[in-house]
Design a protein around this nucleic acid. Structure first.
Lengths: 220, 220
DNA sequence: ACTCTTATTGCAGATCATGCAAAGTTCTCT
DNA sequence: AGAGAACTTTGCATGATCTGCAATAAGAGT
């Protein structure tokens, strides 16, 4: 749990680390801003670097490609979400905690959510970005699994349960958002879609110990 | 359903279409073969094109990048799997059908499975390929959703259920295989992992109509 | 102030990826 | 069979992507 917190919290020691963070954030923000303004196709790495006031070469010290930078804000938003999961009441059922936190995503009160919607709308209609978006989801899955392990008394290394619940949660949310974007404006709010998907998947969150043994017995 | 079958079946009309298929298959096979032989980093598009006996320019008529070609066999394998799902008894519970078909993946009787294992082992330890692998999973999800819709009397366009079940199935299988690869040789066979994951997720496959209303009252 | 460590930058070079037009095929129709 | 349409392959040119390497600059610790 210590490593998790250390990796998540944005508290940084010295000036050097703070500048690195700032550069990374500036690059990611520039990437999204330019893509929203000019369209993903028309934005080059040079443009992004110029907008963030660093050399093009520095860009590649932070991201392997343009797409990674574009998706980085989404990744950070996921990390913040997981942090909020950690601050849910510790005795709450894990399904309820996950539901509350995932619904924060689409709770369109904050201006931040507005930007995020514009962002995922762009990601949703740009096939070349899809793989990298999915990659950031998997990264989120890993962090999520650690929190779930902590909350359910399972082991993120040895047990499949936390990884599985994390994967199912992300998958359900992803499908719900995708369907919402497909029929946007015509069929209700995003939180209805996400809520419905998480209701459907919730029965799979029962701890294996509480689940009746399957017909074909397990591995241990 | 017609469009699905048409897109899936590899039956081709004329010589032209057959040659195109052959070129695509040759490129994908060359990509995997060279990557397994020399390592992903050391293989260039020119190498792949040369191995498949076409010009480098032709490569880009089929794939947008090297990674897409490497993952294409995996994508085709998925399509074949979905075809097999269509031939399961039509009155079988969808959870059982999915279980049977997904377990075919890791049923290591065929020599084809051997190659596939080598392939996913490579994908698993090459972070730069992960995004494209995930992309092929999402493509598989779409086809899978159509079959599930057909089998359960739901609508792949309007209902969330088939897309969700497809997404959960893929997610469970992906997590199981990932965990198996993480502790390979130490903790049993791959089919045990996949089976356990699918057992855990199965309760989420109940049709919404059969599911009791959630505690937190719904959205409608 | 001095040194150690680390980040930034420019440059060279390889690879990636796309548009375009010419050349080579398969297909269709008579 | 043969003419022309439709499509695929290919080479070329060009811009973008990405990686090492070495020099410079800047923060951290003493």
């Amino acid at each position: 749990m210590d490593a998790l917190i250390a990796g998540m919290v944005e508290r940084v020691d010295g000036l050097r680390e703070r500048k690195k963070q700032a550069t990374r954030v500036a690059l990611a923000a520039a990437a999204v801003r330019l893509c929203l303004r000019d369209g993903v196709e028309r934005v080059t790495v040079d443009d992004i670097a110029a907008d963030a006031d660093v050399s093009p070469r520095t860009f590649f010290n932070y991201f392997a490609c343009k797409e990674e930078a574009i998706v980085d804000e989404s990744r950070m938003r996921g990390q913040r979400l997981i942090k909020q999961l950690g601050s849910r009441p510790h005795d709450e059922a894990i399904a309820d905690s996950l539901r509350s936190v995932m619904l924060l995503l689409v709770h369109d009160a904050t201006p931040e959510t507005k930007r995020w919607i514009a962002e995922i709308r762009m990601l949703h209609q740009t096939p070349s970005l899809l793989p990298y978006q999915l990659g950031s989801y998997v990264a989120m899955e890993r962090s999520l699994a650690e929190v779930i392990a902590d909350r359910t008394g399972t082991d993120a290394e040895r047990d499949m349960y936390p990884r599985l619940v994390a994967g199912l949660t992300i998958a359900a949310t992803r499908v719900a958002l995708s369907r919402w974007l497909d029929c946007e404006g015509r069929a209700g709010a995003a939180c209805d879609f996400v809520g419905e998907a998480l209701d459907q998947v919730a029965p799979a969150f029962a701890l294996p110990a509480d689940r009746p043994a399957p017909v074909l017995a397990g591995t241990d």
